[in-house]
Write a protein that binds this DNA or RNA. Structure first.
Lengths: 136, 136
DNA sequence: AATACTGTAATTTTTTTAATTACAGTACAA
DNA sequence: TTGTACTGTAATTAAAAAAATTACAGTATT
């Protein structure tokens, strides 16, 4: 479910970029997104591992950007939340291995998925988070 | 769910391209994909409206390519199944309209989604169905 | 007239996603 | 040193989405 993860993560990142330096609690962030705070913290996990945000535990803790919004592209966010998954998916069911096409389709599809993901990264590289948040 | 629709549709189209001219029943196609025949017919609906396949009702009916695989790109298939939807999605919940970011994020996201979809189309335009099926 | 298809609607089942609950761990601050 | 307000994460429940199934009208073919 890369699909809505990107939206959620970009929304979070935009908030953090809009109020730089401030620590935001997952509850506050969740309010703007109108989703559950636990889900926010889960999404933040991926963004943290990419170094895009940093968090502070304890009272008055929260999260803020891990580096300047000028140095974060939308592709960075996409890659952080994407992990090993693809934007496109295989069918859940295993194709018929006795079929010439069915037996090989998945490997060919996966190769296309890589190309698609790379194309998305390329197009998202163009825009920085700084530029994106300045639209608001 | 554009994600697995593309895989299902490309699988179908590859089968049809591999045995050109022949009428394939949804049951035969469903066997290779290991999915329900009704779902195959549903996917075919989108491909038909794009002129990519043609169907024949009645006994010995079925579907076959609507034009030469040489004249079909993977982008054509993607666009046919995509319809008005995007590969990326908004969050299901409406963001807080009282928040500066929340009130405007969705329109900005939709603009990105268009760019992403266009990038996918561009990369998929490169390969024809003919070339794709010749890999098998 | 029997057969083998498409096309499509309605329903049920399965899968996925999100929400909720719960709580250990941490830092601040009175 | 204790209450408070956070993160981090696991486990469970609820909701939503996707796929499968059932059903059947309509249509060529033989």
């Amino acid at each position: 479910m890369v699909k809505s993860k990107f939206s959620i993560s970009l929304h979070i990142m935009t908030l953090l970029a809009y109020y730089p330096g401030e620590w935001h609690s997952s509850a506050i962030i969740a309010e703007s997104l109108n989703i559950n705070p636990v889900l926010v913290r889960k999404e933040l996990k991926a963004l943290k591992s990419g170094g895009l945000v940093e968090s502070k535990e304890g009272k008055n803790g929260g999260v803020r950007l891990g580096k300047s919004a000028k140095n974060i592209s939308l592709a960075d966010i996409f890659e952080a939340i994407k992990g090993d998954s693809h934007v496109l998916n295989l069918s859940n069911n295993l194709p018929d291995v006795n079929c010439k096409i069915g037996s090989q389709i998945n490997e060919k599809l996966l190769s296309i998925f890589d190309n698609v993901d790379n194309a998305i990264v390329d197009i998202l590289k163009i825009q920085t988070l700084e530029k994106f948040k300045n639209q608001f």
